[in-house]
Simulated scan of single mutants.
Amino acid sequence: MAERRKFRREGEERRRQDLIEATLDCVAENGIEGATVRAIALRAGVTAGLIRHYFPAKEDLLQAAYATIVERMTAQALASLDGTGKTPAARLGAFVAANLTAPIVDARVFSLWAGFIGRAHADPALSAVHRDGYIGFRDRLEHLIAETFASAGRTADAGRLRRHAIAVNAIIDGLWIEGCMAGDLFETGELAAIGIASVERVLGIDMGGENA
């Protein structure tokens, strides 16, 4: 039997977040279809009526849950940029590596992402969350690439930076999926090293990655 979450009563926003976390638990274990209002209420230890007080429709709760996953993954990657003393190239390398290591590379995170993605094509709200998350991530990559080029005395117009960001995002996405689905096939740090080396080749820069 699934363990119930402790529903905290510290404030409106905290209560909403507790319901979102209970929803993520249900989606991870039973998929989107299994994340019924009844199952979420049981996991959160509340009534279905209380859920509807915060989220009038199940779709509203699913949208908030997917947005939480997207925002959490991005925040974890951005944390790699904290601190001082890193060159722009090192910052870009750290960002790529962060996206290809735990906690972002994680079977549960992938299960959640795949569940929401599978529903997004038929759900405009989930599709909008995905689109916003993708554009935000791509914009961050563009910024990091532009900084790296500038520090190396290279110039690139907006169109070229956009295409570079799309290519780097594709490298990260592909390796991330492999790491989440079959992490035991790779050595510690291997995917991050491959990702950095691949981005170096695409951009023609040195971030300290493998040269093999």
Rank of each mutant, 00 (worst) to 15 (best):
G83E: 12
G153F: 00
A41F: 08
D157A: 15
E71S: 13
L42N: 15
N169L: 09
D123E: 15
A197M: 11
R5M: 14
A22H: 00
A122Q: 11
I32A: 04
P124K: 09
A89Q: 12
F186Q: 10
I171M: 11
D132G: 13
T36P: 04
I104T: 13
G189D: 02
R5Y: 14
A165I: 11
A120E: 13
E29G: 08
P88V: 11
W113G: 03
R162M: 14
E200V: 01
I40F: 01
E178Q: 13
V168E: 08
A22P: 07
I172D: 03
N211G: 13
R201F: 05
V199W: 07
A2I: 07
R38S: 12
G195Q: 05
I205A: 04
D184T: 13
H164Q: 13
R154F: 08
A41L: 07
I40H: 03
S151F: 03
Y54M: 02
L144F: 03
E59R: 12
C26G: 08
Q63E: 15
R154G: 12
H53W: 04
F149C: 05
V168A: 09
T87I: 15
G195T: 09
D82G: 03
P88D: 09
N30M: 12
G153H: 00
G83H: 14
A35F: 02
A22E: 06
E187H: 08
A65W: 06
E59C: 01
L81A: 11
A128L: 15
D18I: 04
L100D: 06
I40L: 06
T148M: 14
A122Y: 05
D82Y: 03
I69R: 09
L191H: 00
G174H: 06
E190T: 04
A90V: 12
Q63N: 08
N169Q: 10
I69L: 15
I145M: 06
G179C: 04
W176N: 03
R72F: 08
A170V: 03
S127Q: 12
R9W: 02
R9H: 09
H164C: 14
A67S: 11
E200F: 03
F137H: 13
R52H: 15
E33K: 14
L62D: 01
W176V: 00
I196A: 06
L81E: 09
G136V: 11
P124Q: 09
G49M: 03
A146Y: 09
G34A: 02
F95D: 00
W176S: 02
E71A: 15
